[in-house]
Design a protein around this nucleic acid. Structure first.
Lengths: 182, 182
DNA sequence: TTAACTATTTATAATGC
DNA sequence: TGCATTATAAATAGTTA
């Protein structure tokens, strides 16, 4: 398919490998799409470059719960869902801002927790000392749960959450910055 | 690519659609494979025929060394892992969970702030009462603001962040749990 | 049907800019 | 470091066995 014939084996030259990747990737994506259209088939294609960049295609057909042989339907639905999300992830390029934000929020939370702990301990100690009314002040009524510390989902490397129109993920975050303690 | 040119639209004739499906599917699979080999890329391809039959290709590579002779079966790992990530994203329904996570983290922070403030106030009050050492304990160096008084986040169920090998996302969280006050 | 067979179109390797 | 061009390989639409 080109000036010369080639054998199918890893291309050693990094540059031309990159070039070929780009060309063939596009070709593959195109053909995947054509297949899905021409033949009314569900096609999901995912390609990771060796540098980790993700490219994908997914046919997204709305099978309105019609007569598709039962067996396939569920799977198809599953595939669809998956591919759809992947698609979204693609749209958001790497290095999600939101992701970053998440990390920092997590850190803030940890810091806060620590501080709270210390305050709490101090309070305890203080109440201990001035063991005045053993009753009232110790009943700090808070009960809160943090199920799991938001640690960074590595997966995000491929997803950059899309702030859907209008929604701004930053509304809250900037303020949080102030929470960082000296 | 054939006797005649065609437009890319669903082939009406069921028979020829089937035939075309078969041909192109094979071509696509072949190309997917070639791409993965030539360019050292991870490629995952899934095709469902309209009758629900599944065909797929997945590159097998990477992770360990690179002397993969032929198609190392085990190295499906890399791709699998990545796809799994996508899968996870899918499981968290539409809309970026991460974004959601962010929002909830923010709320948590606010709640924490609130609680910290109150703890701090109590501490102050306590120290006031047992005005023993007016010096040391009152200098709680934290400065924080309460942006918004939100209520406790339902459950902060974060995206099932996949702990990458070893890394345990729970390390910090358990500590937080201990902060739960009676 | 299912499988070959071309005549063409399409993809792309090598090259050029 | 990329885009555009071109000669050629490869895929395949329509056809025939």
């Amino acid at each position: 398919m080109g000036r010369g014939k080639i054998v199918i084996r890893r291309i050693d030259n990094s540059t031309s490998r990159q070039v070929t990747f780009s060309k063939r990737r596009n070709g593959l994506l195109k053909k995947a799409k054509e297949l899905s259209i021409l033949c009314d088939a569900e096609v999901g294609l995912v390609v990771f470059s060796s540098t980790g960049r993700l490219y994908e295609f997914s046919s997204t057909k709305q099978l309105m719960g019609e007569e598709l042989s039962g067996l396939g339907v569920r799977d198809l639905q599953g595939l669809e869902n998956r591919l759809e999300i992947s698609l979204r992830n693609i749209r958001m390029r790497k290095g999600s801002l939101i992701h970053q934000e998440n990390i920092e929020l997590s850190r803030s939370l940890n810091v806060m927790s620590q501080q709270k702990l210390e305050l709490y301990n101090k309070l305890q100690a203080c109440e201990q000392r001035g063991a005045t009314d053993a009753n009232e002040s110790s009943s700090t009524p808070y009960s809160f749960r943090i199920i799991q510390n938001a640690n960074i989902p590595p997966s995000l490397e491929l997803s950059q959450s899309q702030q859907r129109e209008g929604e701004c993920s930053k509304t809250a975050a900037p303020e949080l910055g102030r929470l960082h303690l000296p």
